[in-house]
């Protein structure tokens, strides 16, 4: 028993379990938001992940319960709550600290998802069997979901 738990501990230590992909019905319709009317323009920004955007949308725009929203995204309720909490904190941080918000791909699994690489212009899919979230041709991480 002890050995087993040690094994588990080691496993965890060596490599984090890969995140299950969060289903996002539709990627955000913006690339980012910038504050205006602020004298000392901040260059820092917060990166809002697609799944965080989706969490805000499902809970605060579609007014779903966390249980319903988690089912839509194909994750547990607890995970949804965590993503949602992080999304709200990021938005609050952006508002209070006058930071730009950028929409970033994250760990989303888009329905009928096609992505574009801004480095080599290749368009591609990411099936569930593939772990890498970067461009399959040039390996760049500068990718974005196609609408």
């Amino acid at each position: 028993m002890r050995i087993f738990s040690l094994y588990l501990y080691e496993q965890k230590f060596i490599m984090a379990r890969p995140k299950t992909l969060r289903k996002v019905v539709k990627p955000p319709g913006f690339k980012g938001y910038k504050p205006y009317g602020h004298q000392h323009a901040q260059t820092k920004c917060v990166e809002l992940l697609y799944e965080e955007y989706e969490a805000i949308k499902l809970a605060d725009y579609d007014l779903m319960t966390h249980q319903q929203a988690s089912e839509v995204m194909g994750i547990s309720r607890a995970t949804f709550a965590r993503i949602y909490e992080r999304a709200r904190r990021k938005m609050a941080e952006a508002l209070v600290e006058v930071k730009e918000i950028k929409a970033v791909y994250g760990h989303a699994l888009l329905d009928k998802s096609w992505l574009i690489c801004h480095n080599c212009n290749a368009r591609f899919t990411i099936p569930e069997t593939i772990r890498n979230r970067n461009c399959p041709v040039c390996k760049s991480f500068n990718v974005e979901a196609l609408k």
């Binding site: 212009n121 290749a122 368009r123 591609f124 899919t125 099936p127 069997t129 593939i130 399959p136």
Partner: peptide
């Protein structure tokens, strides 16, 4: 679960291989 990649440039096969190899 096969990944599909669309390239819309006129390239030689070797160019693509080189891009993948980096």
């Amino acid at each position: 679960g096969v990944q599909m990649v669309i390239i819309n440039e006129d390239l030689k096969v070797i160019d693509i291989i080189n891009r993948i190899k980096g």
